[in-house]
């Protein structure tokens, strides 16, 4: 079986959950004969290599404490590919993944399969199922090895790891820097931490307007939940950015996720699909949110919200 290189995305030295999930997936794909290498470009904190136990080998590349630049990570990853010649490179399809996966494929001249939700390895081919058109369709695609795959979060699950593999420290990649980090910030520095809440009420575009958001806020208050939102609602400025769930927002795992008027684009689903109980309210019976939800109703959102609020107030009083 082919050797697999997994790009590990770090946040202050901590591998992201999506990267860890992917690493476990790589382990399974590689079978017993394939070697799995985890590659991480160091940031401002020491890399928590203990979490990378699924890898046979961990390559740590000297990084820039000031923060991520696509150039540096691209150079680091390309150098590693050209040096180690892995059969497959796996990159989690986060925004960082989106930033570098195609660049790497172009740089090393390999095919890229993006938005993968399933991977299968042939003798010298990689087959994948890719989720496209807002989750409306799936594409079965294939290409010859060596290849690069950008895998959607949630496709694999991290499993127990068996202690750290061999750690290799690599020198900083060679490249001409044309970009420079001026400053970085984290939305969790300010505002509410929605990942800490057990109960979330999420509003999507289907609530119509700010009045709809206000109704949802009343429901959240009645339920003792935090209000969160999907990207379109945040883009409109109706809900602050720190409450955004999904690819460009935060990943949450509450006990209850009540999605109101959320259509359920893949970028949103990846941020909440692990919630304990997902209830979706949406008039569009074909909304992809219903694929992720445990319970759903197709009733009118604006009718639904005040009714549930009233009922809950009655139930609690």
């Amino acid at each position: 079986m082919a050797d697999i290189l997994v790009y590990i995305e770090l946040v202050s030295g901590q591998p992201t959950q999506a990267s860890l999930d992917l690493l476990s997936g790589a382990r399974d794909l590689a079978g017993t004969s394939g070697r799995v290498t985890a590659l991480a470009v160091e940031d401002d904190s020491a890399v928590d290599t203990a979490k990378l136990g699924a890898a046979d080998r961990i390559v740590l590349v000297s990084g820039d404490a000031k923060g991520y630049t696509g150039e540096r990570h691209l150079a680091a990853l390309s150098e590693a590919i050209e040096r180690d010649k892995p059969g497959i490179v796996l990159i989690a399809n986060s925004y960082v993944g989106l930033d570098i996966s195609t660049s790497v494929a172009a740089r090393v001249g390999q095919p890229l399969l993006a938005y993968c939700v399933a991977l299968a390895l042939g003798d010298d081919t990689l087959r994948a199922t890719c989720q496209i058109y807002g989750g409306k369709l799936e594409a079965d695609v294939e290409c010859n090895l060596p290849a690069i795959a950008a895998v959607n979060p949630g496709v694999f699950q991290a499993s127990e790891t068996r202690g750290a593999g061999e750690i290799v420290q690599a020198a900083a990649p060679v490249f001409t820097a044309r970009t420079m980090v001026q400053s970085t910030s984290s939305a969790s520095d300010t505002g509410v931490d929605i990942t800490a809440s057990d109960l979330l009420v999420c509003v999507g575009r289907g609530v119509g307007d700010e009045d709809g958001v206000a109704l949802a806020q009343e429901l959240a208050d009645a339920l003792g939940a935090e209000l969160v939102a999907s990207r379109p609602v945040v883009d409109q400025g109706w809900v602050e950015k720190s409450r955004q769930v999904g690819k460009s927002g935060k990943t949450v795992k509450p006990k209850l996720y009540l999605a109101v008027g959320v259509s359920g684009a893949p970028e949103h689903l990846e941020g909440m699909r692990d919630a304990g109980l997902i209830i979706a309210v949406n008039t569009d019976a074909n909304a992809p949110i219903f694929d992720a939800a445990h319970f759903g109703t197709r009733c009118d959102v604006l009718e639904f919200l005040p009714l549930l609020t009233e009922k809950l107030q009655g139930a609690i009083a």
Binding site: T16, S94, V96, S183, S185, S186, A187, S242, K247
Partner: peptide, 8 residues
């Protein structure tokens, strides 16, 4: 970059 992280 998601998770509320951003950079200039």
């Amino acid at each position: 970059f998601g998770g509320g992280r951003s950079a200039q």
